[in-house]
């Protein structure tokens, strides 16, 4: 049911290494980041499609790849799936011709504007909010995409089927479960929901601690 990226709460990863603090530990990390942003600017996929492409790497690849290797692999997969690049071009390392999309290429003088413009995900055309801050809710269980088998979702497994309390209303946002799969934006009210650490992890957690997640209305039911 779950995928390998859904690792919140997992045991066995060892200590965090605060000295691993560089933004780009290798030159190629920076190049991979920039290439990913520039390829994204071609408009052939959205952020949810690209997240799903990384999550859909085989568990073996996801685990053995370093961070930017996941980005590169997902980008290569999306470029081929969208017909932007052919498998033959990936194999030979060279293009067979200029792309029809070449007019969309991000130019150096447009970079600052594109990064500053961002890409807002809030929408106004959604169903009304069903919950208010203070309301008690329960999350969907299991954590899954109910429209696409094995599809993208942003409900982590560790928070599935759990009681929580709404703490913030964020307005309506694009639903990743639909947007990752060509099913439109389907915006829904989005909430910050607080969960008791004890409910999530049992008595190894401190009684007063909380974990807060941003969750869409369809992930929640009244409790």
């Amino acid at each position: 049911m779950s995928r390998v990226h859904d690792m919140g709460g997992r045991y066995g990863d060892g200590a965090v290494d605060p000295s691993d603090s560089a933004t780009f530990a290798q030159d190629w990390h920076a190049r991979a980041m920039a290439l990913t942003l520039a390829a994204g600017a071609l408009g052939q996929w959205n952020i949810d499609v690209s997240r799903h492409a990384r999550e859909a790497l085989s568990p073996k690849d996801y685990s053995r790849f370093t961070y930017y290797e996941k980005w590169l692999a997902a980008m290569a997969d999306m470029l081929v799936h969208q017909g932007v690049v052919t498998p033959e071009e990936l194999s030979t390392g060279h293009a067979t011709g200029v792309s029809d999309l070449a007019s969309r290429a991000l130019k150096a003088d447009a970079v600052a504007g594109v990064l500053a413009k961002g890409s807002p995900y809030q929408r106004t055309d959604a169903e009304p909010a069903a919950f208010r801050p203070g309301d008690t809710v329960r999350t969907r269980r299991p954590a899954r995409n109910v429209m696409v088998t094995g599809g993208h979702t942003r409900l982590p497994s560790y928070a599935a089927g759990m009681p929580g309390q709404v703490v913030l209303r964020h307005g309506a946002h694009v639903l990743p479960d639909a947007n990752a799969h060509g099913q439109g934006e389907s915006p829904e009210p989005l909430y910050a929901v607080a969960f008791s650490a004890r409910d999530l992890w049992g008595d190894e957690a401190s009684v007063q601690d909380e974990v807060i997640l941003d969750l869409w209305q369809s992930y929640l039911e009244p409790a």
Binding site: F24, W28, A30, R31, A32, M33, A34, L35, L37, A38, A39, L42, E69, L72, M75, A76, L79, V84, V85, E89, L90, G93, H94, A95, G97, V98, S99, L101, A102, R104, A105, L106, K107, A108, A110, V111, A112, L115
Partner: peptide
């Protein structure tokens, strides 16, 4: 791998290497 992707996309006219420098 990065180099190969950058080469392919540049040859296809989809990437301006100067834009990558600007992003970095």
């Amino acid at each position: 791998r990065v180099k190969a992707l950058e080469t392919i996309l540049t040859e296809k006219g989809l990437i301006d290497p100067a834009a990558l420098d600007e992003i970095i």
